[in-house]
Write a protein that binds this DNA or RNA. Structure first.
Lengths: 147, 147
DNA sequence: GTGTATGCAAAGCATTTGCAACGAG
DNA sequence: CTCGTTGCAAATGCTTTGCATACAC
């Protein structure tokens, strides 16, 4: 079974009684071609290169749909701007955010995941999602500072 | 040595060449009397009970100062509203946020802290702060749901 | 007195919504 | 044809700023 992202999205759209449109396809494609954590604004800029008439609200609403379909996850860093990241092929992961250069470094940690499970059990909490962000100065910036 | 919060704040204010005022004292007192994670709006409401003439902007600006003085830490949950929590007597800690009742449960985890140190070392990252938030359904709400 | 702080109102921003025109099914 | 979608513009909600007045030092 091929679980292509487009297929997942289309299934979600149809399942919800919604309609497939050119704009939604374009926005999904654009999002799928990103690597970084993109904001609605970023995507809006990219999408406009292909379709100058598309509106900001459409991008915003479509990203909400993509998130609901399970293809994206919303992340908010300290600047308060919502960004989206892929969920496919990128299991649970966390973020280092460099306060100097704004770089975002993703990392995985079985230890954190295991500890989360332990804690959830201890507190009787049902986990739906989590965000672990570490803010600081990255290797590169520390090197630059030293010189 | 008594490290009273008021003293810390006053030292910070003086050190920065700023001035002590009635409003700042009132806002600090109000904040110190809170337990929960309070937003500027929450504090504004509480402070107005004591001083009806105080402005929202003053509360906002003062909370920024209190944060800078090291007495408070800013936390942002998924609703995008900035909230403040105490830093004194409350070492590093993390949050469970219940999506059903909005309760925030704080917890500590040596395992997470240790893992963070390990990761920082591995990535050459200098940690300044971190936010670990787990979203889900709390014990109480799970019980209610079942009935 | 001098320069910071306050309170008010207005500006900023990202996000969200209303609505008439449009287009998928 | 019917109803969801789009694009525009306006509204929202929190945060931030400008400025004249008030006040700490």
């Amino acid at each position: 079974m091929v679980t292509d992202a487009h297929q997942i999205f289309n299934d979600f759209i149809k399942g919800a009684g919604l309609r497939g449109t050119e704009q939604r396809a374009l926005i999904l494609d654009t999002f799928l071609n990103t690597d970084e954590h993109v904001s609605v604004d970023d995507l809006f800029g990219m999408v406009k290169l292909e379709n100058k008439k598309i509106g900001y609200a459409t991008v915003h609403r479509t990203m909400k749909l993509i998130t609901e379909s399970g293809l994206a996850r919303e992340v908010v860093f300290n600047d308060g701007i919502a960004r989206f990241e892929h969920t496919l092929d990128t299991g649970h992961h966390h973020h280092f955010v460099c306060k100097s250069c704004d770089a975002v470094i993703e990392f995985n940690s079985d230890a954190v995941d295991a500890e989360e499970k332990r804690l959830a059990k201890a507190y009787g909490f049902e986990v739906q999602s989590h965000h672990f962000k570490i803010y600081g100065i990255c290797k590169e910036c520390r090197r630059k500072k030293r010189t």
